[in-house]
Simulated assay, not measured.
Amino acid sequence: VQSVVSRTVDPQNPAVLTVGKMVVGTRFNVIAENAVIEGTVRCFDSKTRDHIEKQLQIYAENVANIYGATAKVDYYRGTQAVINDEYSAKLVQKVASQAFGEDAIYNEKPTMGGEDFSFYLDEVPGSFALVGSGNPEKDTEWAHHHGKFNIDEDALATGSELYAQYAWAYLNE
Rank of each mutant, 00 (worst) to 15 (best):
L91S: 09
D139Y: 07
A96C: 12
E153S: 03
I151A: 12
V41E: 02
V73P: 04
N135P: 01
V36M: 08
F117A: 08
A69L: 14
E33Y: 00
A60F: 05
A99F: 05
W142F: 15
A104G: 09
S127L: 01
S133W: 02
Q93C: 12
A89P: 04
E161S: 01
K54S: 07
E102F: 07
V1H: 12
E86P: 00
S46W: 00
G68E: 05
F100V: 14
V19K: 00
T48L: 01
E141N: 15
T18N: 14
L91H: 07
W142N: 10
E115R: 05
V73D: 04
L162W: 04
S118G: 10
W168C: 11
L156R: 03
R77S: 03
L171T: 11
E53P: 04
V131F: 08
N107Q: 11
R42S: 08
D139V: 05
E161D: 01
L91E: 12
F28G: 14
Q165C: 12
Q12T: 14
D122Y: 08
G20E: 06
N84M: 06
V124I: 15
E173I: 05
A99K: 11
T8F: 07
N13L: 07
Q55V: 12
G132V: 02
A15F: 01
A89V: 05
F28Q: 11
I105Y: 01
K148T: 02
R7S: 10
A35C: 12
A81V: 09
N34M: 05
E53Y: 02
V5R: 00
N107V: 13
G126Y: 02
A157E: 13
H145N: 03
Y76N: 13
N84Q: 06
K54T: 10
E141I: 03
T140E: 02
I31H: 04
A64L: 09
Y166D: 06
S46F: 01
E102N: 14
L162H: 04
D103M: 05
N62L: 14
K109V: 14
D50C: 04
K138A: 11
A35K: 04
S3R: 14
F149N: 02
I105M: 01
D154T: 13
A89Y: 09
Y67P: 00
A129T: 12
E123G: 02
S88G: 12
R42M: 07
N107G: 01
Q98S: 15
A81G: 07
Y87D: 14
K72N: 11
Y170Q: 06
L162R: 03
